[in-house]
Design a protein around this nucleic acid. Structure first.
Length: 258
RNA sequence: CCUACGU
């Protein structure tokens, strides 16, 4: 099953749906039962490729066949709606996941109740609202998850920090960063890249460069995205000197420029 | 072997 799942995952990512479905048929033929992971891969990839409608139908079909789904299935579907900016639909999936199944009928036969929202559920919805410019709703969710005793992780903080940076609210981003550290969490490469990006967008390249150089002291080594972000920043300021220097540096580390 | 974050 694991081998089939990996192959199906790869084919779906490449958009080779025909081949993926042939493999699915083949596994049934070889009496290898598809698992929940197999279904989740199909649903997630349909969603990521803009076919939420199909994903939704597929979930409906699995439910009718009494296949046991899980929180990942619904997180994927919810993410699909977020990616289409269909936040009302995303919210409906979210509500349908409420532990105490009354919300069940809000989303016709989704049968999502009893799969309590987890940190990823919140992170997904938060990100959806942030990307749709609903910062306040996102923040409300951030507080709501804590009331529900779900500890925001680094990804959740990154989502909010990115949102603040993109809104030009660097002070708020900074406060969230402090909070992340105060909670005993470790910022990761994404955290720093997000902040560097925010500083670059504000034209604060010296500060951005400082963060870029200091992140290594916190065991976060700049990756290809970090380099690309700061190089773009310097190019925008016409600092070809610094940009060239960094391009060479990233090349020497085996990264490539976008 | 599957789900949320940075260009």
């Amino acid at each position: 099953v694991v081998t089939y799942n990996s192959l199906i995952h790869g084919l779906c990512k490449l958009g080779c749906w025909k081949e993926a479905l042939m493999l699915l048929n083949e596994m049934v033929y070889c009496s290898v039962a598809p698992s929940i992971v197999t279904y989740n891969i199909l649903i997630d990839q349909l969603c990521k490729q803009g076919m939420v409608k199909k994903a939704r139908c597929y979930v409906g079909m699995l439910v009718r066949r009494c296949v046991e789904l899980n929180v990942i299935t619904y997180n994927s579907l919810m993410n699909g709606y977020c990616l289409q900016n269909q936040m009302n639909q995303a919210r409906k999936v979210f509500d349908a996941m409420e532990t105490h199944g009354e919300a069940l009928e809000l989303f016709k036969n989704l049968s999502a109740s009893g799969y309590p929202q987890d940190v990823v559920t919140y992170g997904t919805l938060l990100d959806g609202f942030c990307k749709n410019g609903c910062v306040d709703i996102a923040l409300a969710l951030f507080y709501e998850m804590q009331r529900k005793m779900l500890k925001p992780n680094c990804v959740v903080y990154n989502i909010l920090i990115d949102c603040m940076c993109k809104a030009g609210r660097l002070e708020d981003a900074g406060m969230l960063f402090s909070r992340l550290v105060n909670e005993g969490l470790q910022p990761n490469v994404n955290t720093y890249t997000i902040i560097i990006c925010g500083l670059c967008d504000k034209g604060l390249l010296n500060k951005a460069y400082e963060v870029f150089r200091e992140m290594e002291n916190f065991v976060c080594f700049p990756d290809s995205a970090s380099y690309n972000v700061i190089i773009r920043g310097f190019l925008r300021q016409r600092n070809l000197q610094r940009a060239t220097e960094l391009i060479q540096e990233m090349f020497s580390k085996g990264f490539s420029v976008d």
